[in-house]
Computed example of a mutant assay.
Amino acid sequence: MADLKSRFEQAVADSKKLPERPDNATLLKIYALYKQATEGDVEGKRPGFTDMVGRAKWDAWNEQKGKSAEAAMQEYVDLIESLK
């Protein structure tokens, strides 16, 4: 787990200096996997229609519901590696 956590932290740092900005769908997946890995399942109510960005983020995070922190970390690391 310690090794995965350090690779995850390195991937988080790497995500800030990717060669090009990923498309919105990929950015949402990165966000959702990060939130799932660090905070667990999404809580609270889904944002309303007026908050389009918040709603998209909530939906993306909600799709990861039930995934363990370790699985989310591994997917995050793999996704960032594929974008380098």
Rank of each mutant, 00 (worst) to 15 (best):
A32G: 10
Q74G: 15
P47W: 14
S15G: 04
R21K: 12
F49G: 12
G44W: 07
E43D: 15
L18D: 06
M1C: 07
E43M: 15
A32F: 00
G48M: 08
M52I: 15
S68N: 12
A72V: 08
G48K: 10
E39G: 06
A2S: 08
Y76I: 01
V12E: 04
A72D: 12
M52R: 15
K17N: 06
Q36E: 12
I80T: 02
A37P: 08
L27A: 14
D59K: 12
K67F: 04
V53G: 13
K57S: 10
T50H: 14
L79P: 07
D3T: 11
N62R: 05
S6G: 02
R46W: 11
Y76C: 01
G54L: 14
L33Y: 01
G40T: 03
G40M: 00
R55F: 11
A37H: 04
K67H: 05
T26N: 05
T26Q: 03
M73G: 10
V53K: 10
L83K: 00
E75G: 07
A60R: 00
E63F: 00
P22G: 08
G40K: 00
W58L: 05
K5P: 03
A32I: 00
K29N: 09
P22M: 03
S6Y: 05
Q10D: 12
N24H: 13
E20N: 07
K35Q: 12
F8C: 07
L28I: 14
E43Y: 13
D23M: 03
M52W: 13
L4T: 07
A71C: 10
K65V: 09
K45T: 10
I80S: 00
V12L: 10
Q74E: 15
W61D: 04
K57Q: 13
P47E: 13
Q74S: 15
T38S: 08
E70R: 09
Y34A: 00
K29H: 03
L18S: 08
L18Q: 06
L18M: 00
A32H: 04
